[in-house]
Design a binder for these strands. Sequence first.
DNA 1: CATGAATGAGAATTCATTCAT
DNA 2: AATGAATGAATTCTCATTCAT
Lengths: 208, 208, 208, 208
Amino acid sequence: MGKIDDKKKQKRDSLLGAAFSLFTSQGINDTSISDIVKKANMAKGTFYLYFKDKFDIRDKLITSKATQLFFHAAQEMKRTGMADSEATSLEDAIIFIADSMINDLNEDKRLLRFISKNLSWGVFHNFLMASDEENGYSFYDGYEIMLEKSGRRFRNPELMLYMIVELINSTCHNVILEQEPVTLAELKPELYNVIRDIIHRQEIAALG
Amino acid sequence: MGKIDDKKKQKRDSLLGAAFSLFTSQGINDTSISDIVKKANMAKGTFYLYFKDKFDIRDKLITSKATQLFFHAAQEMKRTGMADSEATSLEDAIIFIADSMINDLNEDKRLLRFISKNLSWGVFHNFLMASDEENGYSFYDGYEIMLEKSGRRFRNPELMLYMIVELINSTCHNVILEQEPVTLAELKPELYNVIRDIIHRQEIAALG
Amino acid sequence: MGKIDDKKKQKRDSLLGAAFSLFTSQGINDTSISDIVKKANMAKGTFYLYFKDKFDIRDKLITSKATQLFFHAAQEMKRTGMADSEATSLEDAIIFIADSMINDLNEDKRLLRFISKNLSWGVFHNFLMASDEENGYSFYDGYEIMLEKSGRRFRNPELMLYMIVELINSTCHNVILEQEPVTLAELKPELYNVIRDIIHRQEIAALG
Amino acid sequence: MGKIDDKKKQKRDSLLGAAFSLFTSQGINDTSISDIVKKANMAKGTFYLYFKDKFDIRDKLITSKATQLFFHAAQEMKRTGMADSEATSLEDAIIFIADSMINDLNEDKRLLRFISKNLSWGVFHNFLMASDEENGYSFYDGYEIMLEKSGRRFRNPELMLYMIVELINSTCHNVILEQEPVTLAELKPELYNVIRDIIHRQEIAALG
DNA sequence: CATGAATGAGAATTCATTCAT
DNA sequence: AATGAATGAATTCTCATTCAT
């Protein structure tokens, strides 16, 4: 019955696409289920066959969009050969990923507005921990592997990640959308310096 | 006719109080004007004599609550004698203020939820720049005076403040409300270290 | 699925009927959407499935009622054989139609009040030009055919019709509703004489 | 106490002026008592000291504005000497007055919209019959004197006036506001011809 | 599975009118 | 006489959700 499942997936994707387009252009509060199904060319009742309500579809969307961002960053890192280079420090890798995501969000301000406004640590954590269906390990697993590969040790890797993510998310939001209080180009070097500091502060000095 | 003005202020405060109580307990989206006036024991029309709409009263509330937090922190600093001591470094002062506010918010999680969710840099900036009616200078003025008194120079004081505020706001939010990924007690030292780093990174080394 | 369409038409008609009854008895301004749906035994939201707002249903009603009046007049003319008689002059035909409509409105003062108060030349013109779905031609087409059949020529047929319609509408309104300044019976002969004059004034004398 | 009366008249006029300005610019339905008193720089309660409600002030306004129009027309007729000339026929006089009023309304479309939309024969009749406080006779008296001076006799002078007034009012309204179906310049000659016809039809032929 | 008509509670907002000052 | 704060009924319109087809 793959055919039916295909059809179902198509409907679901259609609804997700319509919702994303509307959420990002008019905001979640101003988007009604009516709007979504109209845009997706479906009947109102159909929505409820796939999602519980507006917030259900919102959460599904955030996870999916955030995953895309990470994938893209990871791809870029591979493409540049950075991922495999011995010369790449942990700091460089993290900043590279952050930079890739920031650039993507800077290109797509609607996506930024949508993700940023709805990203709590809870949702983000779920996303971090969700293991990929295909290869069975999660983004957090990837993070830990990265740390391990660096051969360095850190006091609280999760807190470290938390502070980095929150700092990036909170400072970039307004800077990208409003160019206030500085431009993104001005923010970036300072931000990346602070990220280095955070990592440095968390490192347990290696034994001589 | 101070009597009438008194009554008006009373009504206004009544509405602000009712709105705050409802906003923090059920959220803004789930609070209607009806709810607010019912709680404030007034007729619906009266609301519109004092506020334009729900968002107007929300913004007024944030500003007023944030002001209270700052005032309390400043008072505490004076009370401890820290404000006047020569030994107090800029870092110490900023961290003291942050700590006082964080503690207050930790005591009043509803206030935290309310402020944090609705605090954009735009609103915060307005608040920072709003000059006090009594003595005619703003919180930002106070910040600049503090910097000056320290005798040190910084590359971009506004960006420095921005990063500190956003870092505090974003990391504390989830930690206080969910104790995730660490407890507040665990976060604080790390957070304050990073604040010191941010300040240090911004300082222009004094000439020998 | 004629069943569903039938039901929809029934609902629509129900709303139109309720609205007409209320508009004519208490006036449009004093009729709320609430009143209409209550009278039609429907939920408030249902109204908005069929009409945009009060003014939408009003315009639909005027057109529909005016069409009925015209149809009735045309039917009468056919019934009397007048339509086909060679002896019927253009003046006689126009006055016959006017007379039929005036009599109908005299019988149904509420309809008169409703139509008259809301009939602008704009709305009337739309109605005149709207081509019937069945046979595809409009009332104005009918008027032009009538002129042609008469074999006579007129300087400005549209202006001629405009003056006749406005004169009838404006003079009959008060006379029917208030019998002031004369009774309808007294007005009619004078009115019809003036209509003859209007037509005569507009005619281009045929070449000898 | 003429001073107090003066003040009262001033307030009343202020309200009338504000109301007229608002009625004509945004329509009666969209003008609230609030708007009126705000424009007149008065307190809300004051309105009710001078007028019963919105409709009261509306009727007072119409009468006053219509009176001004007539006065202006009469003045013009005197100014041109037409009023006293033996050569002026009744038709000429009536058409002169009509023309003057039409021109005034054409210059002030807001006034036209206001008067026309609210002018019923009832209101107009009241106005016609209202005797002037100063010289104690009414516009209708003036009309009768005009007829008498002409030395001609008419079957139903009131009906004659009624038809003329209604024809003018109803045909000019749309033509002035929308230039449809003809321009005012095109309408005028035809309209005045029909007025002549109406008068002619009403005349009782003088005995040889 | 899919539809979409129907629901009706509920939201925001306006405004004529009153009345204590 | 004048004020204007307060009222609260009334109105328009939206929308998540249901359910018969």
